[in-house]
Design a protein around this nucleic acid. Sequence first.
DNA 1: GGAAGAAACTTGCATATACAAGTAAAAACA
DNA 2: TGTTTTTACTTGTATATGCAAGTTTCTTCC
Lengths: 156, 156
Amino acid sequence: MTHLDAARRMAAECLCFRVRRATRTITRLYDEALRPLGLGAAQLTLMNAVAMGGASGQTMSRLADLLALDLTSLSRNLRPLEKGGMLAIDRHEDDRRVRVVRLTPAGEELLVAALPRWTEAHAKVTAMIGAAEAESLRASLDVVTAARHRLREEDA
Amino acid sequence: MTHLDAARRMAAECLCFRVRRATRTITRLYDEALRPLGLGAAQLTLMNAVAMGGASGQTMSRLADLLALDLTSLSRNLRPLEKGGMLAIDRHEDDRRVRVVRLTPAGEELLVAALPRWTEAHAKVTAMIGAAEAESLRASLDVVTAARHRLREEDA
DNA sequence: GGAAGAAACTTGCATATACAAGTAAAAACA
DNA sequence: TGTTTTTACTTGTATATGCAAGTTTCTTCC
Protein backbone atom coordinates (compact mmCIF):
# COMPACT_ATOMS: atom_id res chain seq x y z
CA MET A 1 0.00 0.00 0.00
CA THR A 2 1.72 3.14 -1.19
CA HIS A 3 0.53 6.62 -0.34
CA LEU A 4 -0.65 6.95 -3.93
CA ASP A 5 -2.97 3.99 -3.56
CA ALA A 6 -4.38 5.52 -0.39
CA ALA A 7 -4.81 8.85 -2.14
CA ARG A 8 -6.61 7.34 -5.11
CA ARG A 9 -9.00 5.44 -2.91
CA MET A 10 -9.92 8.46 -0.81
CA ALA A 11 -10.19 10.74 -3.82
CA ALA A 12 -12.57 8.34 -5.47
CA GLU A 13 -14.85 7.67 -2.54
CA CYS A 14 -14.60 10.26 0.21
CA LEU A 15 -17.97 11.73 1.17
CA CYS A 16 -16.48 14.26 3.53
CA PHE A 17 -14.34 15.75 0.81
CA ARG A 18 -17.29 15.88 -1.55
CA VAL A 19 -19.78 17.42 0.81
CA ARG A 20 -17.28 20.04 1.91
CA ARG A 21 -16.42 20.91 -1.66
CA ALA A 22 -20.07 21.16 -2.66
CA THR A 23 -20.77 23.32 0.38
CA ARG A 24 -18.11 25.79 -0.68
CA THR A 25 -19.50 25.89 -4.20
CA ILE A 26 -23.10 26.37 -3.11
CA THR A 27 -22.33 28.77 -0.29
CA ARG A 28 -20.48 31.04 -2.69
CA LEU A 29 -23.56 31.31 -4.89
CA TYR A 30 -25.76 32.23 -1.96
CA ASP A 31 -23.20 34.64 -0.54
CA GLU A 32 -23.00 36.36 -3.88
CA ALA A 33 -26.76 36.77 -4.14
CA LEU A 34 -27.01 38.04 -0.57
CA ARG A 35 -24.07 40.42 -0.73
CA PRO A 36 -26.17 43.53 -1.43
CA LEU A 37 -27.84 42.95 1.92
CA GLY A 38 -24.54 42.69 3.76
CA LEU A 39 -25.53 39.23 4.86
CA GLY A 40 -23.78 35.89 4.42
CA ALA A 41 -25.45 32.57 3.76
CA ALA A 42 -24.58 31.28 7.22
CA GLN A 43 -26.07 34.38 8.79
CA LEU A 44 -29.28 34.12 6.81
CA THR A 45 -29.58 30.50 7.83
CA LEU A 46 -29.10 31.45 11.44
CA MET A 47 -31.63 34.25 11.31
CA ASN A 48 -34.05 31.88 9.68
CA ALA A 49 -33.66 29.29 12.41
CA VAL A 50 -34.26 32.03 14.97
CA ALA A 51 -37.33 33.18 13.07
CA MET A 52 -38.81 29.70 13.18
CA GLY A 53 -39.13 30.15 16.91
CA GLY A 54 -41.70 32.88 16.34
CA ALA A 55 -42.45 35.44 18.98
CA SER A 56 -41.26 33.20 21.79
CA GLY A 57 -37.83 32.85 20.23
CA GLN A 58 -35.43 29.93 20.35
CA THR A 59 -33.04 28.82 23.01
CA MET A 60 -29.43 28.42 22.01
CA SER A 61 -29.51 24.69 22.60
CA ARG A 62 -32.45 24.35 20.30
CA LEU A 63 -30.75 26.44 17.62
CA ALA A 64 -27.60 24.36 17.92
CA ASP A 65 -29.66 21.24 17.45
CA LEU A 66 -31.63 22.60 14.49
CA LEU A 67 -28.43 23.64 12.76
CA ALA A 68 -26.27 20.70 13.85
CA LEU A 69 -23.93 23.39 15.04
CA ASP A 70 -21.71 23.25 18.07
CA LEU A 71 -23.00 25.43 20.88
CA THR A 72 -19.72 27.29 21.02
CA SER A 73 -19.85 28.05 17.31
CA LEU A 74 -23.41 29.21 17.64
CA SER A 75 -22.47 31.42 20.53
CA ARG A 76 -20.00 33.29 18.36
CA ASN A 77 -22.04 33.25 15.18
CA LEU A 78 -24.77 35.14 16.96
CA ARG A 79 -22.49 38.06 17.78
CA PRO A 80 -22.32 39.83 14.41
CA LEU A 81 -26.09 39.63 14.03
CA GLU A 82 -26.64 40.83 17.55
CA LYS A 83 -24.23 43.73 17.10
CA GLY A 84 -25.94 44.54 13.82
CA GLY A 85 -29.21 44.82 15.70
CA MET A 86 -30.88 41.92 13.93
CA LEU A 87 -31.17 39.68 16.98
CA ALA A 88 -31.93 40.18 20.65
CA ILE A 89 -30.59 37.73 23.20
CA ASP A 90 -32.20 37.64 26.65
CA ARG A 91 -32.10 35.35 29.61
CA HIS A 92 -35.03 33.04 30.11
CA GLU A 93 -37.34 34.20 32.86
CA ASP A 94 -37.75 30.83 34.53
CA ASP A 95 -34.24 29.47 34.06
CA ARG A 96 -31.53 32.04 34.03
CA ARG A 97 -29.00 29.69 32.46
CA VAL A 98 -31.01 29.67 29.25
CA ARG A 99 -30.69 32.36 26.59
CA VAL A 100 -33.61 33.17 24.35
CA VAL A 101 -32.84 34.49 20.89
CA ARG A 102 -35.38 36.50 18.92
CA LEU A 103 -35.43 38.58 15.75
CA THR A 104 -35.68 42.31 16.28
CA PRO A 105 -38.04 44.26 14.04
CA ALA A 106 -35.00 45.16 11.93
CA GLY A 107 -34.19 41.46 11.75
CA GLU A 108 -37.68 40.64 10.60
CA GLU A 109 -37.43 43.26 7.90
CA LEU A 110 -34.07 41.97 6.74
CA LEU A 111 -35.42 38.43 6.52
CA VAL A 112 -38.27 39.55 4.31
CA ALA A 113 -35.86 41.59 2.18
CA ALA A 114 -33.61 38.54 1.85
CA LEU A 115 -36.29 36.29 0.42
CA PRO A 116 -36.00 37.45 -3.22
CA ARG A 117 -32.22 37.11 -3.06
CA TRP A 118 -32.50 33.70 -1.53
CA THR A 119 -34.98 32.71 -4.26
CA GLU A 120 -32.50 33.89 -6.85
CA ALA A 121 -29.66 31.83 -5.41
CA HIS A 122 -31.89 28.81 -5.00
CA ALA A 123 -32.96 29.09 -8.63
CA LYS A 124 -29.35 29.43 -9.73
CA VAL A 125 -28.32 26.22 -7.97
CA THR A 126 -31.40 24.39 -9.22
CA ALA A 127 -30.72 25.50 -12.78
CA MET A 128 -27.10 24.50 -12.42
CA ILE A 129 -27.72 20.88 -11.49
CA GLY A 130 -31.29 20.42 -12.66
CA ALA A 131 -34.50 20.27 -10.65
CA ALA A 132 -34.48 16.49 -10.29
CA GLU A 133 -30.92 16.41 -9.04
CA ALA A 134 -31.62 19.28 -6.65
CA GLU A 135 -34.49 17.33 -5.18
CA SER A 136 -32.38 14.21 -4.90
CA LEU A 137 -29.61 16.15 -3.19
CA ARG A 138 -32.04 17.75 -0.77
CA ALA A 139 -33.47 14.36 0.11
CA SER A 140 -30.04 12.82 0.69
CA LEU A 141 -28.95 15.70 2.89
CA ASP A 142 -32.12 15.37 4.93
CA VAL A 143 -31.38 11.69 5.42
CA VAL A 144 -28.07 12.66 6.99
CA THR A 145 -29.84 14.94 9.42
CA ALA A 146 -32.53 12.39 10.20
CA ALA A 147 -29.89 9.74 10.83
CA ARG A 148 -28.03 12.10 13.14
CA HIS A 149 -31.17 12.62 15.18
CA ARG A 150 -31.88 8.93 15.29
CA LEU A 151 -28.41 8.23 16.67
CA ARG A 152 -28.83 11.01 19.20
CA GLU A 153 -31.95 9.42 20.55
CA GLU A 154 -30.40 5.98 20.68
CA ASP A 155 -27.62 7.37 22.85
CA ALA A 156 -30.10 8.99 25.19
CA MET B 1 -45.58 38.28 3.25
CA THR B 2 -44.56 38.18 6.88
CA HIS B 3 -41.11 37.22 8.06
CA LEU B 4 -42.58 33.95 9.29
CA ASP B 5 -43.74 33.04 5.81
CA ALA B 6 -40.27 33.78 4.49
CA ALA B 7 -38.69 31.71 7.24
CA ARG B 8 -40.94 28.73 6.61
CA ARG B 9 -40.23 28.74 2.92
CA MET B 10 -36.47 28.90 3.35
CA ALA B 11 -36.46 26.33 6.13
CA ALA B 12 -38.39 23.93 3.94
CA GLU B 13 -36.36 24.30 0.77
CA CYS B 14 -32.93 25.81 1.31
CA LEU B 15 -30.15 23.69 -0.15
CA CYS B 16 -27.41 25.88 1.26
CA PHE B 17 -28.67 25.40 4.79
CA ARG B 18 -28.93 21.67 4.26
CA VAL B 19 -25.56 21.10 2.69
CA ARG B 20 -23.85 23.19 5.35
CA ARG B 21 -25.61 21.32 8.12
CA ALA B 22 -24.76 17.93 6.61
CA THR B 23 -21.15 19.02 6.17
CA ARG B 24 -20.88 19.84 9.85
CA THR B 25 -22.38 16.49 10.79
CA ILE B 26 -20.17 14.47 8.48
CA THR B 27 -17.02 16.46 9.16
CA ARG B 28 -17.39 15.84 12.88
CA LEU B 29 -17.42 12.08 12.29
CA TYR B 30 -14.28 12.22 10.20
CA ASP B 31 -12.55 14.59 12.62
CA GLU B 32 -13.32 12.23 15.44
CA ALA B 33 -11.87 9.23 13.63
CA LEU B 34 -8.76 11.16 12.61
CA ARG B 35 -8.12 12.78 15.99
CA PRO B 36 -5.53 10.20 17.12
CA LEU B 37 -3.42 11.29 14.14
CA GLY B 38 -3.65 14.96 15.04
CA LEU B 39 -5.23 15.58 11.67
CA GLY B 40 -8.53 17.20 10.72
CA ALA B 41 -10.79 16.13 7.89
CA ALA B 42 -10.01 19.27 5.91
CA GLN B 43 -6.31 18.65 6.31
CA LEU B 44 -6.54 15.05 5.19
CA THR B 45 -8.50 16.15 2.15
CA LEU B 46 -5.85 18.70 1.35
CA MET B 47 -2.99 16.25 1.75
CA ASN B 48 -4.86 13.84 -0.45
CA ALA B 49 -5.28 16.39 -3.20
CA VAL B 50 -1.59 17.13 -3.00
CA ALA B 51 -0.78 13.42 -3.14
CA MET B 52 -2.77 13.05 -6.34
CA GLY B 53 -0.13 15.18 -8.01
CA GLY B 54 2.40 12.43 -7.46
CA ALA B 55 6.10 13.14 -7.48
CA SER B 56 5.69 16.27 -9.59
CA GLY B 57 3.33 17.82 -7.05
CA GLN B 58 0.45 20.20 -7.60
CA THR B 59 0.37 23.91 -8.18
CA MET B 60 -1.74 25.97 -5.85
CA SER B 61 -4.10 26.98 -8.61
CA ARG B 62 -4.69 23.37 -9.47
CA LEU B 63 -5.32 22.47 -5.84
CA ALA B 64 -7.76 25.35 -5.48
CA ASP B 65 -9.61 24.10 -8.52
CA LEU B 66 -9.66 20.46 -7.38
CA LEU B 67 -11.02 21.47 -4.00
CA ALA B 68 -13.28 24.31 -5.17
CA LEU B 69 -11.42 26.31 -2.60
CA ASP B 70 -10.53 29.96 -2.81
CA LEU B 71 -6.84 30.47 -3.48
CA THR B 72 -6.52 32.63 -0.39
CA SER B 73 -8.09 29.96 1.79
CA LEU B 74 -5.82 27.36 0.31
CA SER B 75 -2.82 29.55 0.94
CA ARG B 76 -3.55 29.58 4.63
CA ASN B 77 -4.77 26.01 4.93
CA LEU B 78 -1.39 24.84 3.70
CA ARG B 79 0.43 26.51 6.58
CA PRO B 80 -0.30 24.09 9.42
CA LEU B 81 0.62 21.12 7.26
CA GLU B 82 3.76 22.81 6.05
CA LYS B 83 4.80 23.75 9.58
CA GLY B 84 4.08 20.19 10.65
CA GLY B 85 6.51 18.98 8.01
CA MET B 86 3.91 17.12 5.97
CA LEU B 87 4.15 19.33 2.88
CA ALA B 88 6.93 21.09 1.04
CA ILE B 89 6.18 24.20 -1.00
CA ASP B 90 8.69 25.29 -3.63
CA ARG B 91 8.74 27.73 -6.47
CA HIS B 92 8.35 26.34 -9.94
CA GLU B 93 11.62 26.23 -11.82
CA ASP B 94 10.29 27.60 -15.08
CA ASP B 95 7.78 30.10 -13.71
CA ARG B 96 8.73 31.60 -10.41
CA ARG B 97 5.22 32.88 -9.74
CA VAL B 98 3.99 29.33 -9.39
CA ARG B 99 4.29 27.32 -6.18
CA VAL B 100 4.54 23.56 -6.31
CA VAL B 101 3.22 21.62 -3.35
CA ARG B 102 4.40 18.08 -2.59
CA LEU B 103 4.09 15.59 0.23
CA THR B 104 7.22 15.08 2.27
CA PRO B 105 8.15 11.51 3.23
CA ALA B 106 6.54 12.19 6.60
CA GLY B 107 3.44 13.35 4.76
CA GLU B 108 3.36 10.17 2.71
CA GLU B 109 3.60 8.11 5.86
CA LEU B 110 0.82 10.05 7.53
CA LEU B 111 -1.43 9.58 4.54
CA VAL B 112 -0.94 5.82 4.65
CA ALA B 113 -1.51 5.83 8.40
CA ALA B 114 -4.71 7.80 7.90
CA LEU B 115 -6.30 5.33 5.52
CA PRO B 116 -7.68 2.94 8.19
CA ARG B 117 -9.12 5.88 10.12
CA TRP B 118 -10.64 7.28 6.98
CA THR B 119 -12.12 3.87 6.18
CA GLU B 120 -13.60 3.75 9.64
CA ALA B 121 -15.25 7.16 9.27
CA HIS B 122 -16.46 6.34 5.80
CA ALA B 123 -18.02 3.13 7.09
CA LYS B 124 -19.65 4.99 9.95
CA VAL B 125 -21.32 7.49 7.62
CA THR B 126 -22.35 4.75 5.21
CA ALA B 127 -23.86 2.72 8.03
CA MET B 128 -25.61 5.79 9.32
CA ILE B 129 -27.52 6.61 6.14
CA GLY B 130 -27.32 3.30 4.30
CA ALA B 131 -25.14 2.28 1.37
CA ALA B 132 -27.70 3.22 -1.27
CA GLU B 133 -28.26 6.67 0.18
CA ALA B 134 -24.51 7.18 0.50
CA GLU B 135 -24.08 6.41 -3.15
CA SER B 136 -26.95 8.69 -4.09
CA LEU B 137 -25.46 11.49 -2.01
CA ARG B 138 -22.03 11.01 -3.54
CA ALA B 139 -23.52 11.15 -7.02
CA SER B 140 -25.48 14.33 -6.29
CA LEU B 141 -22.45 16.05 -4.81
CA ASP B 142 -20.41 15.14 -7.86
CA VAL B 143 -23.07 16.65 -10.06
CA VAL B 144 -22.58 19.94 -8.23
CA THR B 145 -18.87 19.83 -8.93
CA ALA B 146 -19.36 18.82 -12.55
CA ALA B 147 -21.84 21.66 -13.03
CA ARG B 148 -19.40 24.11 -11.50
CA HIS B 149 -16.73 23.05 -13.98
CA ARG B 150 -19.14 23.26 -16.86
CA LEU B 151 -20.04 26.82 -15.94
CA ARG B 152 -16.36 27.68 -15.56
CA GLU B 153 -15.67 26.57 -19.10
CA GLU B 154 -18.64 28.40 -20.48
CA ASP B 155 -17.35 31.61 -18.99
CA ALA B 156 -13.92 31.07 -20.52
C1' DG C 1 -30.85 23.44 53.48
C1' DG C 2 -26.23 22.54 52.04
C1' DA C 3 -23.17 19.93 49.09
C1' DA C 4 -22.63 17.37 44.88
C1' DG C 5 -23.82 16.99 40.29
C1' DA C 6 -25.86 18.38 35.98
C1' DA C 7 -27.24 21.76 32.51
C1' DA C 8 -26.61 25.88 29.61
C1' DC C 9 -23.91 28.60 28.14
C1' DT C 10 -18.91 31.52 27.38
C1' DT C 11 -13.93 32.00 26.63
C1' DG C 12 -9.32 30.57 25.00
C1' DC C 13 -7.19 28.68 21.31
C1' DA C 14 -6.60 26.82 16.72
C1' DT C 15 -8.05 25.91 12.07
C1' DA C 16 -11.24 27.00 7.91
C1' DT C 17 -13.12 30.19 4.62
C1' DA C 18 -13.38 34.17 1.45
C1' DC C 19 -13.30 39.12 -0.30
C1' DA C 20 -10.39 43.19 -1.09
C1' DA C 21 -6.14 44.78 -1.84
C1' DG C 22 -1.21 44.14 -2.40
C1' DT C 23 3.22 41.98 -4.60
C1' DA C 24 6.04 39.71 -7.79
C1' DA C 25 6.93 37.59 -12.05
C1' DA C 26 5.77 36.46 -16.76
C1' DA C 27 3.48 37.65 -21.13
C1' DA C 28 1.77 40.92 -24.49
C1' DC C 29 2.32 44.70 -26.96
C1' DA C 30 3.62 49.25 -28.66
C1' DT D 1 13.18 47.36 -25.47
C1' DG D 2 10.29 49.32 -22.23
C1' DT D 3 5.57 49.68 -20.68
C1' DT D 4 1.24 47.63 -19.80
C1' DT D 5 -1.45 43.79 -18.67
C1' DT D 6 -2.13 39.37 -16.86
C1' DT D 7 -1.19 35.65 -13.85
C1' DA D 8 -0.15 33.47 -9.46
C1' DC D 9 -0.02 33.98 -5.22
C1' DT D 10 0.08 36.62 -0.17
C1' DT D 11 -1.69 39.69 3.46
C1' DG D 12 -5.30 42.27 5.96
C1' DT D 13 -9.58 41.70 7.88
C1' DA D 14 -13.79 39.39 9.12
C1' DT D 15 -16.77 35.48 9.84
C1' DA D 16 -17.27 30.20 10.65
C1' DT D 17 -16.23 26.12 13.20
C1' DG D 18 -15.15 23.07 17.16
C1' DC D 19 -12.56 21.14 21.34
C1' DA D 20 -11.09 21.95 26.11
C1' DA D 21 -11.86 24.29 29.99
C1' DG D 22 -14.29 27.70 32.72
C1' DT D 23 -18.67 30.05 34.84
C1' DT D 24 -23.24 30.48 36.34
C1' DT D 25 -27.49 28.60 37.54
C1' DC D 26 -30.50 24.91 38.46
C1' DT D 27 -31.47 20.20 40.28
C1' DT D 28 -30.78 16.24 43.21
C1' DC D 29 -29.87 13.95 47.05
C1' DC D 30 -28.68 13.39 51.48
